[in-house]
């Protein structure tokens, strides 16, 4: 690529220069090669703020071509304002098509959810990560954190789970449940709900985690062992809706969110919900 090519690229409205994309692809490959390991990368500033999906956006821009089809959701909703904003940035910058249907998407960027269905071997799921370090709750010093990961020394995580169970009778970790990937690294599963955790295990799709502010990329390659940290005799629990049903589609098989009155429930995955209604 010549200098003038690079300048032409810039003038065509790209959000990242080509060198940056190459760098991000290299970091992504390293992440895939070492499942769960947080690969540092030279995270660039994006037209969206740090904490607003700048890491996910950089990965999506680096892996998306004009023949791709992208889906962008926030909280499971294609219509969330942040999802809409990111989607138009991705499509205008890459020339990719857009969709709300996960099975049609080659790249799905998401904040806080995995689509209920539709992801397969041809899919890449890009999750926006606010806090990539799963051990920060038990250790603040980054030098010590690096050591703990290097030695797979996770006993303090186990102690925190033990203490939680002793104090509260249940494990109270809510979203972003810590998981052991490929029997080696503990990762923060963004804040996706526990509901989505079992679907990371042995998943057919590639999941890429982008933390722009903390400048880390990590990955769960397809068909990787993903185990939520829990004791052998304390079953991992997903969110319990106590038999509630979505007031739009009437289904209870998806992750439901409630209105403040606690009696009206809705599917968090709006596209899945719409398809249920269509097929009814």
């Amino acid at each position: 690529m010549t200098l003038s090519d690079l300048i032409d690229r810039h003038e065509s409205g790209e959000l990242l220069d080509e060198f940056a994309k190459r760098e991000i692809r290299r970091a992504t490959l390293a992440a895939v090669a070492i499942p769960g390991y947080q690969v540092p990368f030279g995270s660039r500033e994006m037209p969206v703020a740090r904490g607003w999906g700048s890491g996910g956006l950089q990965i999506t821009l680096a892996v998306t071509h004009d023949d791709d089809t992208v889906k962008v959701i926030d909280q499971g909703d294609d219509d969330g304002v942040n999802a809409v904003n990111l989607r138009r940035l991705v499509t205008s910058s890459t020339g990719a098509d857009e969709t709300t249907t996960a099975s049609e998407a080659t790249v799905t960027q998401s904040r806080h959810r995995i689509p209920e269905d539709g992801l397969d071997e041809s899919s890449i799921l890009v999750l926006q990560v606010p806090v990539p370090e799963p051990l920060r709750g038990v250790e603040r010093d980054m030098r010590e954190l690096a050591r703990m990961h290097a030695e797979a020394d996770y006993s303090r995580m186990w102690v925190s789970l033990y203490e939680d169970k002793v104090r509260n009778g249940v494990i109270t970790q809510t979203t972003g449940y810590p998981c052991l990937v490929n029997e080696r690294y503990v990762v923060a599963t963004t804040p996706i709900p526990r509901w989505d955790i079992p679907r990371l295990h042995d998943a057919p799709f590639l999941t890429l985690f982008g933390a722009g502010r903390e400048k880390r990329i990590y990955a769960i390659p397809p068909y990787t062992i993903v185990e939520p940290l829990t004791f052998e005799d304390v079953p991992f629990e997903v969110e319990d809706s106590d038999g509630a049903r979505c007031s739009l589609c009437g289904k209870s098989e998806s992750f439901l969110v409630s209105l403040p009155n606690s009696t009206t429930w809705l599917c968090s995955d709006t596209d899945w919900c719409a398809r249920q209604r269509g097929s009814r």
């Binding site: 006993s155 186990w158 102690v159 203490e163 002793v166 052998e232 005799d233 304390v234």
Partner: peptide, 26 residues
Amino acid sequence: LKMNVTAGGNIAEPLTAAGWRNFSKI
């Protein structure tokens, strides 16, 4: 010892470090 951890939790630390993963056994 970790002062903000229970007596049992302090003992759980070396146990889990040695691979114990069963809550009741710990």
